[in-house]
Write a protein that binds this DNA or RNA. Sequence first.
RNA 1: GCGGGUGUAGCUCAGUUGGUUAGAGCGCCAGUUUGUGGUAUUGGAUGUCGCCGGUUCAAAUCCGGUCACUCGCCCCA
Length: 424
Amino acid sequence: MKPMQPVRGTADLMPRQKSQMNIILQKASTVASRYGFQDMETPIFEFSEVFSRPLGESSDVVAKETYSFQDRGGSSLTLRPEGTASVMRALISNGLTQSLPQKFYYGGPMFRYERPQKGRMRQFHQIGCEYIGSFNPLADAEVIGCATQFLSELGVFDTCILHLNSLGDAESRDDYRASLVAFLSNYKNELSIDSQRRLNENPLRILDSKADEDREIIKDAPRLPAFLTTQAKHHFEQLTNALDKAGINWQLDTNLVRGLDYYSHTAFEFITDALGSQGTVLGGGRYDGLSAMLGGPDMGAVGFAAGVERLALLIEKNEEFTYDIAVVIVDDEVASDGFALAQNLRLQGFKTDIPMVPQVGKKLKRASLIGCELSFIIGKNEIKSDTIQVKIMTTGEQKQIGISQVISFATKFFKRELESNFSE
RNA sequence: GCGGGUGUAGCUCAGUUGGUUAGAGCGCCAGUUUGUGGUAUUGGAUGUCGCCGGUUCAAAUCCGGUCACUCGCCCCA
């Protein structure tokens, strides 16, 4: 009973879903490579500190959403809840800090113990790009440009809006946080329960609270842009100038805050309203502090990650699997001849099936069901005369051709070189 | 983790104030067609009514629990 259903928050990728996923992954990797992001992959689990240090022990992701366990050697390991920390760790582990910048593309499963909802799974998939080793705002622009092109080529860009914000450098952020906490403390009892908690844990988060009472208070709260240092402002301006010049539309969203601790300066999200409360389809930002948290040198980095399942919900595309050719074996005595023919066709690159149902009629029925455009019918009579029957499934036309012409016939047919199907 | 909704055939869903053999469409299988599919026509099978317990003469229907899905919150991709 129990074993017959998948673990909560996991899902099988049946051919339809898998093909949809493949479309997304292929598009992501193709677009990323145009920007120089090279495909790489890290293990799906790491020492727990890889995530707990940079994400912050108190962050929800680490505090209650990680799948952690001890291995037989007693090490505390964690299934990765996101990709950036792993990629940064890999870069440091592999000594690449000596040859910066590095640009990586990755994709794969991530794990978070959350209450599942549409577009939110316990095992889900992300693709992402990381531009590591540059403080230049143009790197931010490159990352956002890549994300934009990816979404656009997938055909989901129109349903999303690019929200952009600057969190400023550490100095700006600390100043602002202090001022915000001071302001909100005056209204402590009027804030929602959640936000009263957030006041201690992650006050910036209150800015995008959905509770009405919070929104009312936030209206008059100090705004982050006013606290940006001149350097931080300059960084943001250079980025937005670049985006504007390239015709990439964006929208300032001063309430946009990244959930994870290591972000600074640029934060952005592509948000759709088509997915309810899981509207963030792709998100990212600058994380200059991450390397140092993991014991690496001080260096700048920007990146994004996109949720594959969420993207899949936005696209209809998928490729139905179809065969090209069916080999219909009429008599059991010629089964080996049928197999040899099918095998030959496959060697030539044709997707070929041998329908394994009784009776010729059902074999042909099967052939049309699985999308064959051609059926090659082979029986005792055909073998005797070194011929086969060719049936064109779309028109129903049928004729006899020599067995030696089968490959050339199929080749011509699928190249659509024949004027009328039977003229040669 | 908190709150709301849903759970009937492979799929989409009906099922009256509790009432006796639980239905439709699509799909599937078979016949009309023993070496010829699609269309048509005839027939057939769909099933632990999510699971466990309770109330009742009687439960798909009411109650409790549980599991799963779903929506919102939290959080995030």
